[in-house]
Each structure stands twice: as C-alpha cells, then as structure tokens.
Write a protein that binds this DNA or RNA. Sequence first.
DNA 1: CGGCGGGTTGAGTCGCATCAACATGCGTGG
DNA 2: CCACGCATGTTGATGCGACTCAACCCGCCG
Lengths: 255, 255
Amino acid sequence: MVHPFLRKLRHGARLTKEHEETFLRLTQSTRTIGAREDVVPLGGQPRYLPLVVDGWACRYTTLENGRRQIISLFLPGDLCEPFGVLPRFMDHAIGALTPCVIAQVRTDAIRSVAQLSPRIEEALWWDLLVASAIEREHLVSLGRRSATERLGHLFCELHLRLGMIGLVDGDELSYDMPITQADLGDLLGLSMVHINRSLQELRKTGMISLRGRRLTIHNLEGLRELAFFDDGYLHRFGPLSLLNADGSDVNQTSL
Amino acid sequence: MVHPFLRKLRHGARLTKEHEETFLRLTQSTRTIGAREDVVPLGGQPRYLPLVVDGWACRYTTLENGRRQIISLFLPGDLCEPFGVLPRFMDHAIGALTPCVIAQVRTDAIRSVAQLSPRIEEALWWDLLVASAIEREHLVSLGRRSATERLGHLFCELHLRLGMIGLVDGDELSYDMPITQADLGDLLGLSMVHINRSLQELRKTGMISLRGRRLTIHNLEGLRELAFFDDGYLHRFGPLSLLNADGSDVNQTSL
DNA sequence: CGGCGGGTTGAGTCGCATCAACATGCGTGG
DNA sequence: CCACGCATGTTGATGCGACTCAACCCGCCG
C-alpha cells in the first residue's frame, strides 16, 4: 500500500525510490483524531505540520455571528500547510471532518529535505501550487457559481483528487464522500437545506446518485459542462512512473 | 521615496540596508501597462514574475458563461506570484485594473536571492503567507458575508494594506480607490447594481463616504464590527525599523 | 455635438435563507 | 429488548437579498 502522499506527488513530480523513502521518513509519527475535533486550534502555534494519512479534514473559520466557512478540504495525502508555510499563530483552525489519521511532519525537516534534491524541492513547490489553485477555484465557485454548479464542480474535483490517490472505483466513477450535508453547506457557502435540495436536483437530472455516503457520477461530461469544470488547475501531468536514481523508469509495482 | 515592495516587507520582516538593496535590484526592469490590459494572459507561460510598482492589478478568471471573478487584488508592492511559485502555464490571468507600472522579476533571481540570507528568505515566506491569508479571507467573504459586510471588510483590509505602503492619508482614514463599481462586483461576487445600492447603504449609515474615487472611513470601529473584520490574518508585527548588518537599528529616514 | 464610460434608479423575478416540522437510523441505557 | 436521545436527512411555507433588465443621468473627450 503506497502512502497517499507519495501517490499524489507522483502526479506532479518525477521522484526516485530514494526520494520517496525520504518523504516517507517525514511521515513516521502519526496520531488519530476523532471526527469534529480540531487538529490545530485557532490561534495555536503548531510545532508540526499536519499531513492527512486517512480521513477527511479541513481548514475553517467561524465568524462572530456563528457562521462557519470551510476554506479548504484535506484528503488523504494532503499537507495542511503546503511546503510548511507556518504562521506564527493560526488565523484559522484545522479540523477533522471524519475520524482521521494525521502524520506530524517536523517543520524543520521539510525544509531540510527540500535541500537534498531539486526534484524533491520541485515536488513540494508543485504541491503548494496545486493546493493554492484548488483554493482559488473554490473561491471562484463561491463568487460566481450557482448551488448546483458548486456541487457539480466539487464532485468533479473530488473525482480527480481521489482518483490520484486511488480512492475512486475504477470505471465506476464512484467514491466515498464521508461528510454531512451540513459540512457541504459550510464548504460551499450554502445552507444545509439548500444543499439537500440541490443534491436532489442533480439526482433528478441523472447526473449523480448519492446513497448513504457513496457518490456515483453517471454523466461525467454533463457534470463538467454544467459546472464549468476545467481540470487544468490541478496541474497533473498524468500518473508517472517511479524513477531510478539515474532517471530511468522502474517498475512501480515493485513497491 | 521607498519602493512599495520594501515598505510592505518592513511590516513582516527585519531587513538590513543590504537586504533591501538586494531586493531593489530585483525590481530594476519595469514596463507600463494600460488599464484593462492583461499583464499575463490565461494559458501563458510567464518568464518574469510581475510585481506591481504602481496602480492596481488583479488575478482573475472568466467562466464560460461570461462571468468574471477577481481572485486577488494586487496593490503597489504586491508580487503577483508570491515567492515565485510559477506554474507551467497560467490557469488564470493577471490583469491591470488601472494603468500600472509592473516590475519584471526574473524567476531564477528570486530563488537565488532567497539563498543569500535567512532573513531574505523569511521575508519572502512572510509575503507568501500574507498573500494566502488575504485570499482565504476573501473566500470567507464570498461564502459567508452579505453584500455590505463584504464591502466593509474590503474597505478595512484596504485601509491596512494601503497604510502599509503609505497610501492612506494619515489621520484622515482616507485613500484612493481607483476601480469601478463593476470591478468591485467581480471582486466581491456581486452584481454591479447591487454594489451600487450596498455602497449607498454604507454611506447612509455614515460609515464611509465615497466621492469620485476617494474613499473615507468615518467610523472604523463600526465598520470592523459590521464586517467581522479581524486584522490578525495580515500578520503584521507593526512597522519595523531598518537594521544594520549587525542587527542594530538604523534611522529609517536616512533612506 | 454626439458618443461613451461610469454611476444611479426602478420594477420584477428568483435563488437561497430561515424557520419549522417530521422521518430515519443508530447507539445507549434502563 | 425496547425506549429514548441524537445526528442526519427531507420536506413545506415564507421572506428577503441579490440578480436581471432597462432606463436615465452625468462628465469627459473627440
């Protein structure tokens, strides 16, 4: 079982086996967190970078009127502060949406690892670039997409992001979506009730089905058109094979 | 006249005169751009990092249905791709909202300058951190703030950001806001008409006045409360004095 | 003078929020 | 084993915030 962090990086960087082992060493120490608990609280001074190994987490804020906004969604393999841009204090919180396994990456370790090889550094820059692009596209959704468009865009994005780490069932276009409709509302800037009705809308038109916590996309192209989804912002250059130190390809299955 | 880039950095980093001169060397080559022109087009492969020296610019996208969303606003002193996280191709465009003077920073130069001193590197990380935080707060506005709250929040933010680079008239709480109401709409995810009416609302309650292109805040505390504005995300630690190479303070006015 | 960019206003509509009730499934404790 | 509470999802009724369309005004400039 390849670590989701590595699976993701393979879509944006060409890494050798040694590089991957270097990354793995960063993610040794882990801890488990219950759903709805904070990984890092608001105002906290984190000493470790949280990296999601299993479960879904998020970055969020709560306004003084009680309204919550989820700023970014963290899936397995996601570094909660890409490339370790750690603030002196957190101006938002990191929370677990489901029970999570979180690796604690030492802040100094990630910087020093970046020095080891330009390829490793590039991989981290790529990760930062993609995370920023996802946040920007999220912002565009909140500003200029309707409720069904926001949902459609999210489902298309999750399809690709989860696919990168092997969490989409092959041809089925189907994946687990373990968060509540209330969470979806806070993520997409909508009320829970309206999320519910917009989901029904998408189901009625046959785009998706959502039973229990499992989402299936029946008409990917239709959904993409509906949601103005263009996958360019994810900056994938396709799943890459692993490299030997000399740059030649190596059989991935050997891992 | 101190370069706006340096003025801004002084609010987050402690730099020596030598550090500042190093930064200045990055911004030598400039070009001028007319209002509404693109600094970097969608899909382009930029060879230089744009740094705004004068005027207002933005990062934006246009959906296929023609709706435009401004993702971030760039004021004088802002690096359009903080710390030079340059994608292989642009998944959005950079455009000038007013006539602009843009410095063209070489992409390799900024990385190599970061190697020169940990202080310089920190300054660039700080810049990246703040730019991300501003974008996130923008996202929260689009998701969870009403029209007047969004405007209020923007005006509070501009007050601080422009203040950092000396573009706010001292005690007057007054600054130039050279963009149109249509641009404000695209920035805040609202229609032009609704921006107009919400501005009137803010004027009627005496919070602000806006004549021509000049905005004055009459009740800063009131505006902050109204807009749930908390300045923590800007991560300023106050205007700092310049340092000598040994770390001791130097008279700022000597520049 | 006419055109144009920017701002302002009115009327009508609709997307989404809010409030409220109810259904369902699940875990827990009596 | 059932009763209960609780979290989640669903549905209906109502109201408001924001959009759209459309007209009109003003100052500026060619």
